[in-house]
Simulated scan of single mutants.
Amino acid sequence: MDSEVKEEIPLHEEFILCCGVETQVLKCGPWTDLINDQSATRPKLLIFIITGNPGFCAFYVPFIKALYSVTNKRFPIWAISHAGHAMLPKDKKILPTSEDPNAQEVKDVYGLCGQVEHKLAFLRTHVPKDMKLVLIGHSIGCYMSLQILKLAPELPIIRSILLFPTIERMSESRNGRIATPLLCWFR
């Protein structure tokens, strides 16, 4: 029965350019364009998921649908991939969007600080300024959520939920001492 209900839940996949990089966005619910929707039925709250690594949204589909069901389908739930972590399928096109002309170019959009700026640019461009936000970060997405709270106090974030956070001193852990030099070399 649950699987039948979950199949009826509307899930919309988009590929947009954000900070000049292909970005996958999954949107659960009937609200795919909150900026241009001025109707009275437009929700007042957006639940926004910042993924952990490997940074693509498909991993979160069951969670997104379950969260949408649990909130009685009252709020849109969006998840964003990390910049450069999701490839555009051959049968899809990048949606034309209006990037914020005042947005500054992100120097290293693929680095950790650049990924934070990528999420901020998306929120500032695609979410109405008066829409309340609940940020849900998973793993490294928790760190990004905390940085967003620090860097953008003007955003109307009412909650930040951290799921299995990677916040600090990751490189000092046993696995981090092994992985950090290797990852730095690959980069």
Rank of each mutant, 00 (worst) to 15 (best):
170 M>H: 01
38 Q>N: 09
81 S>G: 13
127 V>D: 08
12 H>F: 04
120 L>C: 09
87 M>G: 11
34 L>V: 01
38 Q>S: 11
58 A>M: 06
35 I>W: 00
186 F>K: 12
14 E>F: 15
43 P>C: 05
53 N>T: 07
20 G>L: 00
111 G>R: 15
5 V>M: 13
81 S>N: 06
56 F>G: 00
66 A>H: 15
17 L>P: 03
139 S>I: 06
131 M>Q: 07
6 K>N: 10
82 H>W: 07
92 K>W: 12
24 Q>W: 01
111 G>V: 06
111 G>N: 15
94 I>V: 14
61 V>W: 11
5 V>E: 14
130 D>M: 01
125 T>S: 15
157 I>L: 05
19 C>I: 06
82 H>Y: 02
141 G>P: 04
112 L>D: 13
42 R>A: 08
119 K>G: 03
116 V>Q: 12
132 K>T: 05
142 C>M: 06
39 S>Q: 03
4 E>V: 14
51 T>R: 07
6 K>F: 05
95 L>N: 05
82 H>A: 04
183 L>S: 13
172 E>S: 13
38 Q>K: 14
3 S>N: 10
130 D>E: 14
168 E>C: 04
163 L>N: 06
55 G>Y: 09
42 R>N: 09
8 E>H: 06
112 L>M: 15
40 A>R: 10
20 G>Y: 02
173 S>L: 10
78 W>H: 05
143 Y>P: 00
46 L>S: 03
128 P>D: 10
184 C>M: 11
11 L>V: 15
140 I>S: 14
120 L>E: 04
171 S>A: 09
104 Q>T: 07
120 L>A: 12
14 E>L: 12
154 E>M: 08
31 W>D: 01
97 T>F: 12
86 A>E: 11
137 G>Y: 08
126 H>W: 13
183 L>A: 13
45 L>F: 00
9 I>S: 00
162 L>D: 00
88 L>W: 04
38 Q>W: 02
86 A>G: 08
156 P>R: 11
106 V>E: 03
15 F>A: 04
115 Q>E: 10
23 T>I: 06
175 N>W: 08
134 V>M: 11
123 L>N: 00
72 N>P: 02
93 K>E: 08
152 A>T: 05
118 H>S: 09
142 C>K: 12
129 K>R: 10
79 A>D: 01
8 E>I: 02
165 P>F: 07
22 E>I: 13
26 L>T: 04
4 E>F: 09
177 R>M: 09
96 P>Q: 10
112 L>A: 15
88 L>D: 03
185 W>T: 12
119 K>P: 05
109 V>L: 10
52 G>L: 07
91 D>I: 04
53 N>W: 12
10 P>Q: 01
79 A>G: 08
3 S>K: 12
74 R>E: 09
29 G>R: 00
106 V>L: 01
15 F>Y: 14
91 D>W: 11
97 T>H: 07
127 V>N: 02
178 I>M: 02
41 T>K: 04
173 S>K: 02
19 C>H: 07
154 E>D: 15
155 L>A: 13
141 G>K: 09
165 P>D: 02
130 D>T: 00
18 C>G: 03
93 K>N: 10
